[in-house]
Amino acid sequence: MKRADRNFAELLQELRVAQTGVQILFAFLLGLSFTDRFAALDATQRGIYIVTLVASALTGILLVAPVAMHRLLFQHGRKRDVVRIGHRMVVAGLCGLLATIVGGLLLVLDVVVGPTAAVGAAVVLTAAFAGLWGGPALRVWLRRESCELPQPGPENVRPAYSAHQATGSSSSP
């Protein structure tokens, strides 16, 4: 149970970092629709805006869900389930955060520099996310999977634990 408590505390700490970014992006996106310049967006830009706004809202939901689930299951002895399911929600929320950041960048750059440069920047940013978020974790995971534990040879084998060691007897067998 202590391990589940520690894992949940770590999960909450990670959520604090991710939720701040989502909340700022969501507020920006909500406010954007009330500006004068929003009326000048073309159909594609409005589509990008809507997809990005929805992705931001879903991301917020996914990142708050583990906390809500913990509250609903509080003191029911289900902490391991909360951590396991919460982990999946956070991973999905991080994917949503990626979509929200890339969508926001795509929208702003499409308005400022045009669609070609915006799409190029969005592709580069997506690759950077994949490389920096997933790349190191994937390398560690693959290295762990490919490493085999050393098999004990005669030089690495300890003598068996004997009953006379347990009793503190100093006599030889």
Score class of each variant (00 low, 15 high):
Leu132Pro: 11
Thr35Leu: 12
Ile50Thr: 11
Val82Arg: 02
Leu138Thr: 07
Leu106Thr: 04
Leu11His: 03
Thr126Tyr: 09
Ala68Glu: 09
Pro150Trp: 13
Leu12Cys: 08
Arg158His: 12
Thr20His: 12
Leu73Val: 03
Gln151Met: 11
Arg16Trp: 02
Arg88Gly: 13
Met69Ile: 08
Gly168Val: 04
Leu109Pro: 01
Glu145Gln: 10
Gly131Leu: 09
Ala18Lys: 02
Met69Cys: 00
Val112Cys: 05
Ser146Gly: 02
Phe38Arg: 00
Ala122Trp: 01
Ala92Ser: 11
Ala40Gly: 13
Ile61Arg: 07
Val108Trp: 07
Glu145Arg: 13
Val108Asp: 02
Leu109Gly: 05
Leu62Glu: 00
Gly86Ile: 10
Leu32Met: 02
Val90Arg: 07
Ala18Tyr: 03
Thr35Asp: 01
Ala65Trp: 10
Phe26Val: 08
Gly114Trp: 02
Ala18Gln: 09
His70Lys: 13
Arg84Lys: 14
Gly96Leu: 01
Val113Ile: 08
Val113Gln: 01
Arg3Asp: 15
Phe74Gln: 06
Ser171Asp: 14
Val108Phe: 12
Val140Cys: 00
Ala65Glu: 03
Trp141Cys: 01
Val102Cys: 02
Pro152Ser: 00
Arg158Glu: 15
Glu155Asp: 14
Arg144His: 06
Val82Ser: 10
His70Arg: 14
Ala127Glu: 00
Val119Glu: 00
Leu94Ser: 05
Val111Asp: 02
Thr52Cys: 00
Val102Met: 01
Leu12Glu: 13
Arg143Cys: 05
Ala163Phe: 14
Phe8Cys: 10
Gly96Trp: 01
Ser171Gln: 15
Ala27Pro: 03
Ala160Ile: 11
Arg6Ser: 09
Asp42Lys: 07
Ser170Ile: 14
Gly93Cys: 07
Ala55Pro: 01
Leu109Asn: 09
Leu30Met: 13
Asp81Gln: 12
Gly168Pro: 08
Ala39Lys: 00
Ala39Asn: 02
Ser146Ile: 04
Asp36Trp: 07
Glu148Ser: 08
Arg139Ala: 12
Arg144Met: 07
Leu149Asn: 05
Gly96Asp: 03
Ala127Tyr: 03
Ala163Tyr: 15
Gln19Leu: 09
Ser33His: 03
Ser169Leu: 07
Gly60Trp: 08
Arg139Gly: 05
Ala118Leu: 09
Met1Asp: 06
Val111Leu: 07
Asp81Asn: 11
Asn156Gly: 15
Arg3Glu: 15
Tyr49Gln: 03
Gly47Trp: 14
Ile24Arg: 02
Leu125Ile: 11
Pro150Tyr: 13
Leu97Gly: 14
Val51Pro: 00
Thr20Met: 10
Gly96Lys: 03
Leu32Ser: 01
Lys2Phe: 02
Phe28Tyr: 12
Leu62Ser: 05
Leu149Val: 07
Ser146His: 11
Phe38Leu: 01
Arg37Ala: 11
Phe129Met: 04
Arg143Val: 10
Ile61Tyr: 12
Ala18Trp: 06
Pro159Lys: 06
Val22Pro: 00
Ile85Met: 04
Leu41Ile: 05
Arg37Pro: 00
Asp110Glu: 06
Leu62Arg: 04
Pro152Gln: 03
Gly120Lys: 00
Thr44Cys: 04
Val123Thr: 08
Glu155Ile: 12
Leu30Pro: 01
Arg37Met: 11
His87Ser: 15
Val123Asn: 07
Pro115Phe: 12
Thr35Ile: 09
